[in-house]
Simulated scan of single mutants.
Amino acid sequence: MPKLVDHEERRNHIAEATWRVILNQGMKGATVRNIAREAGLSLGALRHYFSTQDELLVFAMKLVKDRATERIQQIAMSDLPPKDKILNIMLELVPLDENKMAEMEVWFAFTFYTRHKNDVLDAQHDGIYAGMKKLIDYMDHHHMLRNNLDKEIETEKLYALIDGIAIHALLEPHRVNKERIKAVLSQHLDSICAEG
């Protein structure tokens, strides 16, 4: 009897192989041939799932985003106090562990690779700005923000903080470590929240 193949699992396996190739060889090394080899598949088998390199790259990056979104949704649905919930969501968006470090490195490599390719996934619309806007709106709705804050400016500041600290954590992981990231994000959250 032929072995049944879980096609979604196989597509995810190929996407994860793509991440490993990008981490080890950069975007230039992310050829269909190298990815097939990393995934342990023939070129024909890989092309059965992804007909073009761009289609494969888009799926691989979407999987990064989907996994982060799933983790964030679990936090959003938790019973944590509102401020802890917000902090934990922000911490999901920065590289605090080896897996998130790899996801972030792959995401930034992909972002720089696609910035001049308009027909590929627009990595600039990664959902982080929209997520920061939702966090600010959530804090406003729960009367957590200090009075007279400009919500648009605070959204932009939070977006810049998350992106900036993620890049610094990638470039200087010994200096911008887990404890420092938590301290910076906690202090920023304290600075925009009303006391009490």
Rank of each mutant, 00 (worst) to 15 (best):
L93G: 07
L135G: 01
L149W: 09
K151M: 12
H168F: 14
A130V: 11
G44K: 09
E154I: 12
D54F: 11
H141K: 15
D119K: 14
T155Y: 06
N34M: 08
M27Y: 05
K134H: 12
N24W: 05
L63K: 06
I153D: 10
E92H: 05
L56W: 04
M90P: 08
E103H: 09
M139S: 00
Q74F: 04
G40F: 05
A130N: 09
A160R: 13
V32R: 05
Q187T: 13
H143V: 05
E105D: 14
M104I: 06
L93C: 14
Q124T: 15
L56Q: 02
I167K: 07
G164N: 06
K62H: 12
I75P: 03
L121P: 00
A160D: 10
H188N: 09
L149A: 02
D119P: 08
T69V: 09
N118A: 15
D84A: 11
D79S: 14
E70G: 03
Q73M: 15
A30M: 01
Q25V: 02
R180P: 06
W19E: 00
H7G: 04
L96A: 03
L41Q: 02
H143C: 04
L185Y: 00
V94P: 01
P81S: 05
H13E: 14
H188W: 11
V120T: 09
D66M: 13
D126Q: 06
